[in-house]
């Protein structure tokens, strides 16, 4: 545990969760991506606070810098002058499907939370001592829920990134910042960036080939269901 008073940790944790909420549930996609960059910068601050400067550097460059650029590339903001996909996601899922998906995701996260409480003694006795660990649980639950809920490909990419950050925070909270944990997290950050880049290139290509409707994943099955009786 760090020597600084937990007040700063608490504020950071609250800020992280608020930013995660902002970037996951804003339908205005450019704003959501900008909030994500802010989120990644706060993650870098959290790593610094946890005593892992290398992770902070990796998060700053990979998470905020390169992943942010990839997201803006997918949106057509970068490079300037690219064709612009729609900047808003107006797609509304049929309520029942959405509810079932979200409940399943949250149940899965609840199970993990229970297991964490069991395996980490600190969590059981005084959870407030570890606000960042709690933020990790909340962020991964939000990320998984949003991943299950959203159909827009870019929003799913965002949800994946938030889920990833939550998992990394959980990892660091569970293991401390030993060398192996840092190696795992840096690998994870690299993979998240590569995945986002690949996803962004795909989104651009799909938009180029098919227009905006291609960006809603699984739209085929939903459309068929709507046409059904």
């Amino acid at each position: 545990m760090s020597a600084t008073p937990p007040l700063f940790d608490l504020l950071l944790a609250l800020g992280l969760v608020a930013l995660a909420l902002g970037c996951l549930f804003d339908r205005h996609l450019v704003r959501a991506c900008s909030v994500f960059v802010g989120f990644a910068l706060s993650m870098a601050l959290a790593w610094w606070q946890l005593g892992a400067p290398w992770l902070a550097l990796a998060e700053f460059s990979l998470g905020a810098g390169l992943t942010g650029c990839s997201l803006f590339y997918a949106l057509g903001v970068l490079p300037p002058g690219s064709p612009l996909p729609s900047r808003r996601d107006w797609f509304r899922e049929p309520f029942r499907q959405a509810a079932i998906r979200a409940v399943l995701a949250l149940a899965w996260m609840g199970m993990i939370g229970a297991a964490l409480r069991h395996s980490v003694p600190v969590m059981a006795y005084s959870p407030m001592q570890q606000p960042l660990l709690l933020a990790g649980v909340a962020m991964s639950a939000l990320g998984l829920g949003a991943f299950a809920l959203h159909r827009h490909l870019l929003r799913r990419l965002l949800a994946f990134n938030v889920l990833g950050s939550g998992v990394f925070l959980l990892l660091a909270g569970l293991t401390g910042t030993m060398a192996h944990a840092q190696a795992l997290i840096i690998t994870g950050l690299g993979v998240a960036w590569l995945g986002t880049l690949l996803g962004a290139m795909l989104i651009r290509r799909l938009y180029h080939l098919q227009g905006a409707k291609a960006l809603i994943s699984d739209n085929e099955s939903i459309r068929q269901k709507r046409q059904g009786p």
């Binding site: 889920l163 569970l174 795992l184 994943s217």
Partner: peptide, 28 residues
């Protein structure tokens, strides 16, 4: 491309699940 991006997203989430399992093992 459509099949690929679906696979990509699922594979990425799958590896996060793997990572969380590893985190539990390393922590305990």
């Amino acid at each position: 491309l459509v099949a690929g991006i679906r696979y990509l997203l699922l594979a990425l989430v799958g590896s996060l699940s793997y990572l969380l399992g590893v985190a539990l093992i390393l922590g305990h």
